[in-house]
Every structure is written in structure tokens, then in C-alpha cells.
Simulated scan of single mutants.
Amino acid sequence: MNPTSQFLGTTEYDYGYDENTAPCNEGNSFHRFKSIFLPILYCLVFVFCLLGNSLVLSVLLTRKRLTTMTTMPDICLVTFAASDLLFVVPLPFQAHYASDQWVFGNAMCKIMAGIYYTGFYSSIFFITLMSIDRYIAIVHAVYAMRIRTASCGIITSLILWLVAALASVPNIMFNQQLEIEQSVQCVSAYPPGDNTWKVASQFAANILGLLIPLSILICCYAQILKNLQKCKNRNKIKAIKMIFIIVIVFFLFWTPFNIALFLDSLQSLHVINDCKASYQIALALQLTETISFVHCCLNPVIYAFAGVTFKAHLKGLFQSCVRVFSSPVGGVGAGRLFPSAHPALWLL
């Protein structure tokens, strides 16, 4: 079984559809890719995502403090960083699994699947929420003052967390530890002869993980671009560039995986019923899903470190750390992370 995609229930490596025919072989190159390259990549993604998002949380919680987070963007960035961290929690387990077999038990198999999928959905949901918040702040600035509050951000975030958790329930139900060909695996075990749950889960990932979020991103940022065209602010060009970066990066990192996931759904429905095509789809799923993991490492750069105000607070945090180590008394100031009078600044 695929060492990553079993969490998504995406593919099986016994490619025969007719039980009377011999299964396809996955090939030595595929096995080497899984056992050597994947553990290294998973560990690198885990380390960089952990460092980047932990730094974001550190800046937010020390320079802003929880008690002074009074706007939706403050809450969004905290929950967004937390969802990215949640998304990569299973990667150390997956790194070991890719190099050997599943040794963590059936309960951990289900728990890791739930954590992975909740992080998968919530991370994309919060990207979408931040885009909507930017749209409201820039296009409907007057209305934004009433709705972009911390309480609204908390309620919205809780709802998105709940939806993400509910979307992960089928994966928790079907994921289990099984012994396959003398190897212990953590796999999605669907009812025999019925691909309904598998296909439904994959279509849900396509719809909730790409189609709806990407559509919202395009609509929001198209309106923001129109609004910025009328603005004479000298930072307008930087804001426009950042908009294109956000949409393009999201599209490039998540579209290939969703295409491969859709093709695997067609394979489960027997629309695609060819041994060679099955192997290619399995390889595409593994490669594209691995590439999509890198997106959580880029999120802190795109959504936090690129912002001029955030960089100022980051600099302040480092200066505070230097003062702590260089003098017996060190203080950390608190200020507004995103001045509501200039909502376009956190696009920069």
C-alpha cells in the first residue's frame, strides 16, 4: 500500500481488477522511491514546517498576546499556523512507515489518519477564510469594521475546525492495521466489492480541497485586483504581485494531486481499467501528494513573513531575544499586528 495515500484512501498497489487475473507489480524503482526518498522528504517537510509555523505562532503570541488579538486576521493566522502544524504531525510516523512497515498499532493508525485529514482540510479552509477576509477588508472596508472582529474570527474558525473534523470521520472509520503479504500495513479497508465510500471520499477531497477553495480564491482576488486598480497607493504593485503568488502557488501545489486523485476515482469506477495506467496513477498519486506537502512549508513565507507589519514584529521579537540574553531585564512589546486602517498592508 502507498505509505502516504493510505491516509487518503487513494490507491492500492495490487492493481488487478479481476480477482482471476494476476496483479500488477509496482516495480523496483517505485519501491526504492518509497523506502529511500520519501522518509528523507517527510522529515525535511516536518522540520521546515515545524520551524516556520512555530515561529509564526511565537511572533503572534509574544508580540500580540492572546488578550490583544482583536481582529479576524489575528485569529486567522494563529489557526492557520496551527492547522499546518497539525497537517505534518503524522509525517514522522509516515517516514518510518515508508522505510519499513506500520509498527504503531491499530489505534495510532486511525488517530494519525484523523489528524492528517483534519489538518489537510483545515489548512485549505483557513487559506480560503483569509482570502475572504482580505476581500471584505479591501473591497468592503466600511462593512469590514463591523464583521472583522476577534469574536467573528473565533466562531468562524471553530466552525471550520468542526467541518474539517467531520470530513475526516470516514477515513478514521475505514483506516486500520492489517497484515498484507507478511507485512503490517496501515490501510483504508473498504467493504469488499463496493467502492462507494472510497470514491465518495476522493470526490469530497476534490470538491472541498480544490474546486470550492480555488473558486473562492479566484473570485475574491479578482475583486481585490479591481479595487486596487483604482488605488493610488505606492504599495499597490506589491499587493498585486502577492495576490498572484497566493493563487498560483495554491494552484500549482494542489491541482496535480487532485487530478491524480480524480483519475484514481475513475479507476475505482472501472472507467480506467488497465494495468499500466493503474501503475502510472499510483506513481502520480505518490509524487503529487508528496509535492503538496511542501505547500505547508511555504505558507508561513507567503502569509506571514512577506507582510511588512509581520516582519517588523518578527524583528522586534529577535531584538527582544537579544536583550534577554544580553541584559538581566528584557521586555516584549505588544502592538497591532495588522492595523485595521490599512487592510491592504497584510497582502504585502
Rank of each mutant, 00 (worst) to 15 (best):
E12L: 05
S188R: 09
K276T: 08
T11E: 13
G330K: 08
G209A: 08
G119K: 04
T309V: 07
I240L: 05
I155E: 00
I127D: 03
L348A: 02
I248T: 14
E19D: 09
L211Q: 02
I36C: 10
I207V: 15
Q176K: 12
L129F: 14
I243P: 00
C152A: 15
V89A: 13
S292W: 01
V249G: 06
L51D: 02
A81P: 06
N53A: 07
H270V: 06
I136W: 14
D14N: 11
L44I: 15
F46V: 07
Y190Q: 08
V324G: 06
A334R: 08
A98L: 07
Q94W: 10
T128G: 00
I259W: 02
Y117F: 14
A334M: 13
S320P: 00
F253A: 02
T309D: 15
F244N: 13
L44R: 04
E181T: 02
D264A: 14
Y135L: 11
F253Q: 00
P300C: 13
F104H: 10
V142R: 10
L347M: 15
G193K: 09
R323C: 04
C76L: 15
C220V: 03
V142K: 14
C231A: 04
A137I: 07
L38F: 08
E12G: 05
V294Y: 12
F33A: 07
G193T: 02
A304F: 12
G27S: 02
